[in-house]
Amino acid sequence: LIFLYAVPRNAQKDDKEAAEPLGTLTETQFQSVEDAIKRFRENVYQGIHISGANNIRIPYIRKLKRDLGLVRAEKGYRVVLVYLPELMNTESENAMLKILEEPPEQTVFVLTTERASELLPTTRSRCQIYRFNGVAEGDMMRWLDSQPVSSENKKIIARLSGGNVRLAMELMASDTPLADQTFVEFWRQIAGGQFIELSQTVDAWSRLARENKDALFLKLRMMILWLRDAQILALDPESPDISNIQYRTTLVRFAGFLAAFPYHEAILKIETTIKGISQYVHTPALLTHLFVEIYALIKVYGVKK
C-alpha cells in the first residue's frame, strides 16, 4: 500500500526538486504528520488534518512515479491510496493524470474525495466512480445523543454534516455555537443593504477560504440552514423542526419581515456560489455577487410594506 496525502511545505527550504519530500520538513512539521497519521489509524473518521498541509505538490507525484518504477521482489497487486486528491495543484494533477493514463502493471489507484467536482474532468474520466451514502439524519442524531455535544448544536451538526461522520466530528471538536450573534448581525447587514460592512465580511471570508476552504463552506451552509429555518417558521412559527433553536425568536421576526420570499431561489444561489468556489472561481467576486443578489431578492420580493 502506498499512501499519498498533503503535507506542509517548509518555507525555509526549496522542496520543488526534493528527492524525498518528507525530508524537507522541520522536526515540528514531521511530528505533526506522524501525529495526524496516528490519529487516523486509531479512528478513520477523524480524517487527516495537518497544520499547513494545503495541497499535494509535484515532488510527491514524482516520488510516487519513481517508487512505482522500482523492481519489486514480492508478487501481487499494489494499491495507491490518494487521500483528498482535490488538494493536488494543477501541475500535480496533470502529472498524476499521466500515471493514470498508463498505470504500471498490477497497480490499483484509489482516490478518496468528498469533492469530486474539483478534480479535472480528464482525471474523473480515468476513474470508475463509487458513491457512498451518508448516515441518515435520524441515525446521526441518535449517535450525537451519545456524544459530548451541546443541545443547541446537535441538530445543526446533524444537518450540516450531511451524513458525513468525519465532518460531524470536526464540527463537534470545538462545541461552540455554530450560529452566534455575529451571524445574526450578518443577516441584518444583508437585509439593510449595509454594503461597507458586507465588503468587510467579503474580505474576512475570502481570507478564511485561503486558509481553510471548508471553513468558508461551513459559513455558506449555515446561511442555507438559516433560510430553511426561516422558511419553516414562515409556515408555522411554533414548528420544532428547525436547526437554530436558540435563535427561534430572531428567526420568527426574520421570517415575519419577509413576505413571499423566494427561499428556494436564494438557497440555489448559495449552492451555486459553493460550487463556484470549489472550482476555484474568484472567491471575493462570488461572495460579493451572492450578497448583492440576496439583498436584491429581499428588496424586490420579501420586504413587507
Rank of each mutant, 00 (worst) to 15 (best):
F195R: 04
S206D: 02
P262W: 03
S161K: 02
E170F: 08
L144G: 06
R131E: 12
A168R: 03
Q12L: 15
Q12P: 01
M88N: 06
L22S: 10
W205T: 07
L22Y: 01
I245A: 12
I48P: 05
Q12I: 07
Y247G: 04
F186R: 04
I157D: 00
M223I: 07
R188N: 14
Y45I: 05
E293H: 07
Q29K: 03
L220P: 01
K65V: 11
I294Y: 02
A285S: 11
I48M: 03
K304R: 15
L178Q: 03
A204K: 13
A179R: 02
Q181F: 08
Y295C: 06
M140H: 01
E293N: 11
G192M: 05
L235W: 04
R221H: 11
Q181N: 11
Y301C: 14
V303Y: 10
M140E: 04
D145R: 05
Y263R: 05
D35K: 15
I298V: 14
Y83D: 15
Y295D: 07
K154V: 13
T288I: 06
I224N: 05
W226V: 13
I196L: 10
F291P: 07
I61Q: 00
T90D: 13
L119C: 00
L218M: 10
A116S: 14
R124S: 09
L216T: 09
T176E: 15
A191T: 13
R248Y: 01
Q29G: 05
F257M: 14
G276D: 09
Y5F: 15
T283G: 00
R221C: 03
R66I: 12
G134E: 01
N55S: 15
S32A: 12
S92M: 08
L22A: 11
S150F: 02
A36R: 03
F254Q: 07
L225D: 07
S32N: 09
G276N: 13
A215M: 08
M141C: 04
R188D: 15
G162W: 02
E17D: 14
A158V: 03
S278T: 11
N94S: 12
L4W: 03
R9S: 14
R207W: 02
N212C: 06
D15I: 10
H282R: 10
P237E: 00
I48W: 05
A204N: 09
L268K: 13
D139F: 01
S199G: 07
T26Q: 02
L178D: 04
I48L: 03
R39L: 15
F183Q: 07
V300C: 05
D67C: 06
Q46I: 07
D180F: 01
E293T: 13
L81R: 03
Q12G: 09
K213M: 15
N10R: 06
E17M: 09
F3P: 06
R210I: 10
K213N: 08
M96N: 05
Q246A: 15
L220T: 10
S146Y: 01
N133D: 14
L258H: 08
L178E: 06
D229M: 07
I61N: 05
T113Q: 02
A266M: 07
A11H: 10
Y247V: 09
K16H: 09
D214G: 10
C127G: 02
A234R: 06
H264I: 14
G193E: 00
F195Y: 08
K63A: 12
V44W: 03
A204I: 08
K65A: 14
V300Y: 03
I298L: 06
M169H: 08
